[in-house]
Design a protein around this nucleic acid. Structure first.
Lengths: 126, 126
DNA sequence: CTGTATCCGCCGCGATACTG
DNA sequence: CAGTATCGCGGCGGATACAG
């Protein structure tokens, strides 16, 4: 991988970069994971909100909007009163969830190791 | 997955949650990816810094410290003057990189779709 | 029930300067 | 070269109130 090659495109304003930035917002991955693992890829707004204890409505909607704009989630308004809106993973979104689930699985599996090593106060020995 | 089951542990202060929070810091995944993909899992501090255009030294070190505290990265000080320090992925860290690489691969592959859908201004039709 | 509109505190992170 | 110390701002995101 020689210097100057465009192998390091990932550090500029490219797709990988932007995807990562998407995930740097607090709730993105949890919304996706929740949508998939708990509701099979589709859920009503309120249901989703109740599935994510601690999330504010503002952030729920905002996160869903970003996911929608990125083509990972689809919004369906049933045009009823009272309002009823479904959010569903797009095919693209479904693909995206896979790596996320891997991270979850990994974290769950290595929880002991992670817990053990986490509490020590960043030991700078010597 | 019935309600009330502790299947939703992932939303509390558990390993998966904390791992995700780790990744919510700006440079975490990029440092890991860079360490793996560009330097085979081990690199000198300065090399790493130069591999990540735009990163500040403060954030580089801070990120490495967090990764070290989580057991994903190991620090080796060669005790020389001038100083020389290597950072290397632990076995745990190497495992963790896999899902990240998947995300990268996915993002690279779907870049066109992502680009196309990104620029539209969060269309709220009707 | 599904949003939208403000207000605002906290802190992530960049810039800069300094040390061994 | 590797790392620490400070300062400061922008913005993420929570709380609250309001709307259709």
């Amino acid at each position: 991988m020689q210097p100057g090659s465009n192998e390091d495109e990932w550090l500029e304003d490219c797709a990988p970069r932007r995807v990562l930035e998407l995930f740097s917002t607090k709730w993105t991955s949890m919304v996706l994971h929740c949508l998939q693992a708990r509701h099979g890829g589709e859920a009503r707004s309120g249901v989703l909100e109740r599935s994510l204890p601690g999330i504010s409505r503002k952030m729920l909607i905002q996160t869903l909007r970003e996911l929608e704009a990125s083509g990972l989630v689809e919004r369906e308004d049933h045009d009823t009163v009272p309002p009823a809106v479904d959010y569903r993973l797009t095919p693209l979104g479904t693909l995206m969830v896979e790596p996320i689930e891997l991270v979850y699985a990994w974290a769950r599996e290595n929880a002991p190791a992670l817990d053990a090593l986490r509490t020590r106060p960043t030991s700078r020995r010597r």
